[in-house]
Design a protein around this nucleic acid. Sequence first.
DNA 1: GCCAACGTTGGC
DNA 2: GCCAACGTTGGC
Length: 158
Amino acid sequence: MRQRKHHWLMKSEPDAFSISDLERVPTEPWSGVRNYQARNFMRQMQPGDEVFFYHSNTDVPGIYGIAEVASLPYPDPTQFERDSHYFDPKATPEQPRWDLVDVRFVRHFKTPVTLAAMKAIKDDLGEGFALTQNGSRLSVMPVTPAQWKRILKLEAQG
DNA sequence: GCCAACGTTGGC
DNA sequence: GCCAACGTTGGC
């Protein structure tokens, strides 16, 4: 049993699924993560954990708002769907390889916190922050309480 | 178990 | 559209 809320950052390509898309649904299963490190982070998630919603592969990459974890981790159903882009022939319902959580919209940022802005305070965010590490492609990552606060301060500064 | 080749991510 | 960085695959 864990008492503290944990913080995360999750990337999505807004052309595929944006924070505005998330706002229109009750909850969204975060399917399609096929990276072990990202999967292992999702396995640590608990309902109520807070999530920075990051838009990648777009004109202005950055954090566009906040979501929350809305379920415990469970097997990603798309790994079993033969027609799915995310089908994994090595996964079986008895031995699933990929998990996900449901995610719920919380709020938009007043102004996005851009990747450029976060790179500008790279030292404040620390060495271990995958987002500002060159070439990191990790799509789900933990955010420390200090990093969370620092990024919210950036939002407040607009 | 090494590592070259390949595919993907994602910023620019 | 380019390409650097990275993870995965598969031959040996």
